[in-house]
């Protein structure tokens, strides 16, 4: 029956983006317009740069989460993992600074990356080899990473060594031709991720595993390997975010990254990735992260909302953004 109720055949064009994928960008555009109407300062270059820069951490982590979620997994540990990696990186840099000086910074970045990959691998192997539901497995590691950062800081703060502070600062506060570095980093991460997800065998496998594990298995795909690798990619993304995060406040505390996991998942879902897996939208995720940050920014810039009701209004806007996204799919 479906065959007869046919739409007229469309020409196939490889790079086109259908209306279905435009949802998050429409929502973003609507939000920008509303923001401008509420307060023209919203569109000032400074404010836009600040907000987009701030969204970089969530965006970078959420790009990793796009892989995990597209492959049918879920990672709740990203927030505490980010805090943990931040802590390890700062402690390492402080330890290395007296002997190697500012070379401690690139070394620390490498340490961050390795730590992130290891954390991702840990999550991945617990989920795949241990056959534990991703929700529970990463809930467990979330607690572990959070406890480790609390332990490393004695519950307080570990701050980066003063001698490194100024040298490292540009990684968050610097810019190239006026574009803040965290934005460039997240664009680079998104470009690479989009290539991997849409233009490589791994991306195909990742989405296939999330869409239907059985089909993937019967097609000769190693489901465990694909899933584990998705968690490793997530770990790498968290590490990159942590590298950009450290110079912002120059410190790690037990409250660093608290509830980031929920922001990350929200960004991914607003971006059009299916929470049950089988569909990943890298650029949508980036738009989702920016939308979240814009909403928070608008709450402050507008005078309509009582400080007590901010969270409620944010919730309503997120739901409306999802509805715009849903309707544009029809």
């Amino acid at each position: 029956m479906a065959d007869l109720a046919a739409a007229p055949p469309r020409a196939s064009h490889g790079w086109s983006i259908g209306w279905g994928d435009a949802g998050p960008f429409l929502a973003l555009a609507a939000l920008v317009l509303i923001g401008f109407l509420i307060n023209p300062d919203f569109l000032s270059a400074n404010n836009i740069a600040n907000v987009v820069t701030r969204s970089a951490f969530i965006a970078i982590i959420a790009i990793g989460a796009t892989f995990v979620i597209a492959s049918g997994g879920l990672d709740l540990s990203v927030g505490s993992m980010a805090a943990f990696i931040t802590g390890v990186t700062i402690l390492f840099m402080n330890w290395a600074a007296p002997s190697v000086g500012t070379a401690a910074i690139p070394l620390g970045m490498a340490v961050a990356l390795v730590t992130g990959l290891a954390c991702g691998l840990l999550n991945g192997t617990i989920v795949t080899l241990g056959r534990i539901e991703p929700f529970i497995a990463t809930l467990g590691t979330m607690g572990i990473f959070r406890a480790l950062i609390t332990y490393m800081t004695d519950g307080g703060t570990v701050a980066i060594d003063r001698s490194l502070r100024e040298a490292y600062r540009p990684v968050y506060f610097g810019d190239v031709l006026g574009v803040p570095i965290p934005i460039l980093v997240s664009l680079a991460v998104a470009l690479i991720a989009a290539y991997v997800l849409y233009r490589t065998r791994y991306g195909r496998r990742c989405v296939a595993v999330g869409a239907n594990e059985d089909v993937a298995r019967y097609s000769g795909i190693s489901v465990a390997r694909v899933r584990t690798l998705a968690f490793v990619i997530q770990g790498a993304c968290v590490a990159i975010a942590a590298i950009c995060y450290v110079p912002r406040l120059g410190a790690a505390t037990p409250t660093t990254g608290v509830l980031w996991e929920l922001q990350v998942i929200t960004a991914v879902v607003i971006g059009g990735t299916a929470l049950r897996g089988g569909r990943g939208r890298v650029w949508g995720t980036v738009a989702g992260a920016v939308i979240l940050e814009f909403i928070a920014n608008l709450m402050v810039l507008s005078d309509f909302v009582s400080e007590y009701l901010v969270a409620a209004v944010q919730g309503v806007i997120i739901i409306i953004a999802m509805l715009i996204q849903r309707m544009s799919k029809r």
Partner: peptide, 25 residues
């Protein structure tokens, strides 16, 4: 088959290494 996927990805899913030897699609 992946019912929500288009035809080409379904066709090549079991032979990705053969169809895309370079790794990129």
């Amino acid at each position: 088959l992946l019912l929500d996927e288009k035809l080409a990805p379904n066709l090549t899913l079991a032979a990705l290494d053969r169809v895309h030897p370079a790794g990129g699609l």
